[in-house]
Structure formats: structure tokens, C-alpha cells
């Protein structure tokens, strides 16, 4: 069925208002964007890594997780915890111990710290073992819950509290880890990268594919953070769109080894357009730091070219 925003927003919510996430944060719309792709009749069990989302959505005795069940156990183990839940389902179902249970879907959420760094082993194990689950990384590019420390997802040159831009150092000295590609190489059933913009068609369609593709699936969502990035809270959607239009955050998916770029900007914007509104890149615009922007642009271009090549190669092969 073709995507219809008006229909989708009428679906029962699985993540209710009243949570304590910041205004202008990308995580709540990420969660809603993903969970709204669940069929109304299906049940879901959500796992969350420790992080902003978890500590703001489930504070005893309250919970924002509605019309679904939820578990959090620790920071680095959402992959393993979710794989335990999913395996319990398979075991109990096989033994006929789950009479009357609807289809259950298993979705894990983790920030980039809990996914790219401390939780990478647990995620890798879960994907390799082939659990029927979706792991969603809401990537805000730093340890925002503890106050913007750098992660391996932090963009090159970004100013963070553990890799600050100073007189000698230019912010983060390494480029980002390419986790989406690492997930592709796990022979994952479906891998996608998406962002929050427009009428949420892209995230919805990718969530739907991930949830209803059997086997391990991974979705990476660019999830802006007003505190860590330093943008006005009402700019959430705009900043996401700039990430996409500069090709800093390409929208693409990989299924059965075939790369598909879902959006190619008619006019690819220069990276400055994405960097400029954010305080974390402010130092890059100081006189003498032009090389940083140049290098950043080169890295973005290189990744974009790589994806165009992969798309061409994998589509030609088939």
C-alpha cells in the first residue's frame, strides 16, 4: 500500500507523550517513525540500551511504552537482550506454550554510543546469529546522555566534551566509523539508513521493510540533538534535510547485497549548509580553518561516490 501520512498518524501509538526527552530531539520521532510501521494487529517487544531514550521514556512508576512491552537491562547489550527475548518467543511458540499470542515483532533501540562503540560486539553477535529482529540506531553522533562526549559516530572535527576544539586540536581528529557498511557485511537481511524529514515516508517505508523482512535487520536513523549539536530546537527537520541534501547522510538501503540510494538530491548542497547552523562545527568557519571544511567535503564526496558505484555495480550484476 502506498504511504499515506494521514493514515499512518491515525494508527494506535506505541510511544505516548509525557516522556522527558528534550524539545527538538530526534529520538522520539525516530521511535514513532519506526513503530508506526507495525501492523495494528501485531504485538511488539521493544528493547532499549541505556541512554537518553531509556532514561527519559521509562521512569518508575511511569512508562511511555504503550501498546507494546518494553525491556531495558544495560547499556552495551541491547542486541543480546533482544536476542534473548526473540529466542524465548521462538522456543515457547514451538512448544505450544503461547496460545492466543499474536505475531510478535522484536525491535531494539540504541544510541550511537550503545551501538557503534560499547554495544558493537553484542550487536554483531545478534546480527550474525540471525535473530528475527530489527536493531535501530538513533545516531546523534556523541554520548549525549552523559553530556556530549565523542563516540566513533561523531563526525570529523566536531567539538565534543572529550574531543574539544582547542588551540592545538581541531575537535575530533578521526572521521566517523561507517557502521552501516559494517552491518551490510554481516549478511544482514536488510540494512537501511534514513533520516527525519518531509512527511516521514522514507523512515516509514524502511521501518516496514525491516520489521517485515525475516531475519536480522539494521536501520540507522540520523537523530539530531539540539544540545549536542547546538541548533535551535525548531530546526530538527530542517537540519535533517540539510544532512540529506549535502549527502552527509545518504539515504540508502541494502537488501540481498543490492544497494539502492533512495534519494539523490537534484542539487547536492555544499557541506557548509549542514555545518553552519551547528555550534559543534563553529570553529571550522574561523579564518585559517578552511582546510577542515575542505577535508570534510572530500570525505562526504568520497562516501557518496562509493555508494553511487555500489548501486551501479550491484544493480548491473543482477
Amino acid at each position: 500500500m502506498a504511504y499515506n501520512l494521514k493514515e499512518v498518524v491515525k494508527r494506535k501509538t506505541r510511544f505516548s507523550a509525557g516522556h522527558r526527552m528534550c524539545a527538538g530531539c530526534g529520538a522520539p520521532p525516530t521511535v514513532r517513525g519506526i513503530l508506526s510501521a507495525l501492523k495494528e494487529e501485531d504485538n511488539a517487544i521493544i528493547t532499549s540500551a541505556t541512554g537518553c531514550l531509556e532514561v527519559s521514556s521509562c521512569i518508575y512508576p511511569y512508562t511511555s511504552w504503550k501498546n507494546c512491552s518494553f525491556i531495558h537491562s544495560a547499556f552495551e547489550n541491547a542486541g543480546a537482550t533482544c536476542s534473548g527475548v526473540e529466542t524465548a518467543y521462538r522456543s515457547l511458540k514451538k512448544q505450544g506454550k503461547l496460545n492466543g499470542t499474536k505475531d510478535v515483532k522484536f525491535i531494539a533501540f540504541g544510541g550511537d554510543g550503545g551501538t557503534y562503540d560499547i554495544g558493537l560486539q553484542s550487536l554483531s553477535g545478534a546480527m550474525e546469529r540471525g535473530h528475527d529482529m530489527v536493531y535501530v540506531c538513533y545516531d546523534n553522533g556523541a554520548y549525549m546522555n552523559t553530556g556530549t562526549q565523542r563516540s566513533s559516530a561523531t563526525p570529523h572535527f566536531a567539538d565534543t566534551t572529550t574531543a574539544p576544539a582547542g588551540k592545538v586540536l581541531p575537535g575530533k581528529i578521526q572521521p566517523r566509523k561507517d557502521l552501516t557498511e559494517i552491518m551490510v557485511k554481516h549478511n544482514t537481511a536488510y540494512v537501511a539508513q534514513t533520516a527525519l524529514f518531509g512527511n516521514f515516508k522514507d523512515i516509514h517505508e524502511k521501518a516496514e521493510k525491516a520489521i517485515y523482512t525475516e531475519g536480522p535487520c539494521f536501520v540507522s536513523v540520523l537523530s539530531p540533538c539540539p544540545r549536542g549539536w547546538g541548533y535551535p530546537t525548531d530546526m530538527l527537520i530542517e537540519i535533517s534535510k540539510l544532512a540529506v541534501d549535502t549527502c552527509f547522510w545518504p539515504l540508502y538501503e541494502v537488501k540481498d547485497g543490492i544497494y539502492t540510494i533512495n534519494y539523490k538530491p537534484a542539487k547536492k548542497l555544499p557541506v557548509e549548509e549542514f555545518l553552519k547552523p551547528q555550534k559543534r562545527f563553529k570553529h571550522m568557519f574561523k579564518e585559517g580553518n578552511e582546510w577542515m571544511i575542505k577535508q570534510f567535503q572530500e570525505e562526504v564526496d568520497k562516501k557518496w561516490e562509493y555508494l553511487l558505484t555500489m548501486e551501479k555495480l550491484t544493480h548491473n550484476e543482477n
Partner: peptide
């Protein structure tokens, strides 16, 4: 009838135990 999870570490072994037990399984 057991489902075995050949986890990649003991940390994940206990994490998966927790997930499965919370889900309602004997673990």
C-alpha cells in the same frame, strides 16, 4: 525442546538470559 543461543561472550550470555527470562522462558 530448548533453544540454544551460542552467544559471543558471557556478558551477552547473561544479557540473553535476562531477555529470555523476562520474556517468560525458563532459562
Amino acid at each position: 525442546d530448548t533453544e540454544f543461543i551460542p552467544v559471543e561472550s558471557e556478558h551477552s550470555a547473561m544479557s540473553a538470559c535476562i531477555g529470555a527470562s523476562a520474556a517468560g522462558a525458563r532459562v
